[in-house]
Design a protein around this nucleic acid. Structure first.
Lengths: 343, 343
DNA sequence: CGGTGTGACTAGACCGGTTTATAGACAGTG
DNA sequence: CACTGTCTATAAACCGGTCTAGTCACACCG
């Protein structure tokens, strides 16, 4: 169509009266050019408005400055989960420092995700990848390990094969949640969790059940959902109409807790007098509802940053072990209180 | 470190007993190779597990299959706004069809954003860009126009210079919101909006004021915020304690409306009996609170898809005009009702 | 039978950088 | 003064594709 003759390294070299090689050396801070020449080269580049063509650069240097992230949750849900954007922004904060960018793709299922990563890796599009939402016996682990994709896994090390994991101790956090509610006198505690297949949901479920047992409480009812607000609402409704109505409910994310609070209000239950609710993640959402939501809170942004740092270590060829980030801790707010007097 | 001799087009060519060129032709669905040969080539490629190196491809074809998107809102906020992820997923749905990917970056301010786009464009990293959140006299317009970056602007055409705009009629929607509330008998209507500088906030503000005037209502109070939940709460608090307390409040997004509902409850006002609240965007959030939130609703996913389609047209060299997507329309739910009897 | 197409295929230039081997200039040294 | 070493700078190979110009075989035509 047009292209007013793109400026290349050659033009800059000509203008500065040097060779292509010299320009390359100057721009990569390498020795081999005098300060005076370097200066001249920078000036020429500035006058011409030149910046190195990254495509050409990565072709010849066999290096690429893009990280891949595929997310495999329904779009509708992603929009709602404050978690992801916060997580992504944490990743970005580290990438930006090193002039890396994040390539994002939403996929429908794990197979599509695996294929995408394979294709990105084979085609040298990405330098490494971030894998999230691990399932038990996750199919991505063997496939992606075998092609040697540098990646860091966000999930419990027991799930992530040989990929270095960045993980948070969900089991301990789940136990703390139960203990806290028990300490408030609650004896019938329920949990509204994520899908059964999902690794961290399973871990929380197990820890939840074990802690209930430890404390001598009857086994709490647990309902698996798809993290979706409306599913959270449905689960809450089902819990609140049951004969053995729980007096406290733990949710696996903030959205479902908000939905739960909505359902409680709709059914005439007062939070926290009739039922205590405990959210998970502690995004800003927990602070703007009424009552405010008590939550298991952690720093999702830092979590993302740590993931990115670990990935750089992996790409750099270091044999990184798994990294544990701080365990979510309880932040009490207005949605939890003493259990109501025995009914 | 290792690299088990990366497979290139040459290896595939050798294995299939043809030249590099033939492999290239076969893989790009171009004529010039017989079906039999094509077949052999594909087999060879499959056996070797080869996929074209996209870096090399874009270098020689001067084409790139990546779209850039820089978002310039504080990370904390992005996580909360259901809008963006939904919007992004709409974009993705179109990109994926054409095997394009989305390069995402969070930036701190418009200057950083401008520089980033310039650098992406000069370095041939992206084929085009999506610009969002236009301000009045947006500095990005002249800078990016002058370098010839193919881009589509999400915002009212009056703000986007010569960039093709994809926009939604906020003025009409804002007027509809006011008219609806007025029809319910509200006479003191307030608005909690976005930052004054932001284009669509300004448009809504103007339309809001104009409609109030048209209906013969006293000028409604409008408060500018940063879209943040806590700011929405603060604004609502300030409105509800004022002498001229409004009986209806329109918010510029869902989060602030949720926060507003929280504040109302905290202050003992019943929604919608004492005060009606109207959200904007209508994410799932509006359906899970209690009461549910009435909202100006639109299809953000399709919006994103339309933006992507328009961008492809621009990249393809078509002189696209601006495209208008459907105007947000009112979806009444539980947070709006007749105005309380005259106090 | 020579001339003209046409389709299949190849050699090699090219994209815009990086990197290596090498040349030249100059200073220091025995 | 020849000899070595250091520093600056260059030419050319290279990365892995695309793409143009051209070769070749074969059929078709007058």
């Amino acid at each position: 169509m047009n292209s007013p003759a793109r400026i290349t390294i050659k033009d800059v070299a000509a203008r500065a009266g040097v060779s292509k090689g010299a320009v390359s050396l100057a721009f990569n801070q390498k020795p081999g050019v005098s300060d005076a020449t370097r200066q001249r080269i920078f000036e020429a580049a500035k006058e011409l408005g030149w910046a190195p063509n990254l495509t050409a650069r990565s072709l010849s240097s066999q290096r690429v400055d893009i990280i891949g992230l595929a997310l495999c949750r329904p779009a509708r849900l992603l929009g709602l989960e404050p978690f992801y954007m916060d997580f992504i922004s944490g990743i970005e904060s580290v990438l930006a420092d090193r002039s890396y960018s994040l390539l994002l793709r939403l996929v429908r299922d794990l197979d599509e995700e695996t294929e995408l990563y394979k294709s990105w890796w084979r085609s040298q599009t990405i330098a490494g990848a971030i894998l999230v939402d691990f399932h038990e016996d996750d199919p991505r682990v063997p496939s992606l390990q075998s092609i040697g994709l540098p990646a860091v896994a966000v999930g419990h090390p027991s799930l992530t094969g040989s990929f270095p994991a960045v993980w948070t101790d969900d089991a301990t956090a789940a136990a703390e949640a139960v203990r806290y509610l028990a300490a408030l006198g609650h004896r019938r505690i329920a949990r509204v969790g994520g899908p059964v297949g999902l690794g961290h949901s399973a871990i929380r479920a197990t820890a939840f059940a074990a802690t209930m047992r430890d404390l001598g409480l009857e086994e709490g009812r647990q309902i698996a959902t798809g993290f979706d607000g409306s599913e959270g609402a449905r689960a809450t409704r089902s819990l609140l109409v049951s004969a053995e109505r729980p007096t406290a409910i733990v949710y696996d994310n903030d959205i479902m807790a908000v939905a739960g609070a909505g359902v409680a209000a709709e059914m005439g239950f007062v939070v926290p007098d009739d039922v205590s609710l405990l959210a998970w993640d502690d995004s800003q959402l927990c602070r703007i509802t009424h009552p405010t939501l008590s939550a298991m809170s952690h720093d999702v942004h830092s979590f993302g940053a740590q993931v990115a740092r670990t990935l750089f270590a992996v790409i750099g060829g270091q044999h990184t072990g798994s990294v544990q980030v701080p365990t979510p801790s309880l932040t009490p707010r207005g949605s939890t209180a003493q259990a109501p007097a025995r009914s």
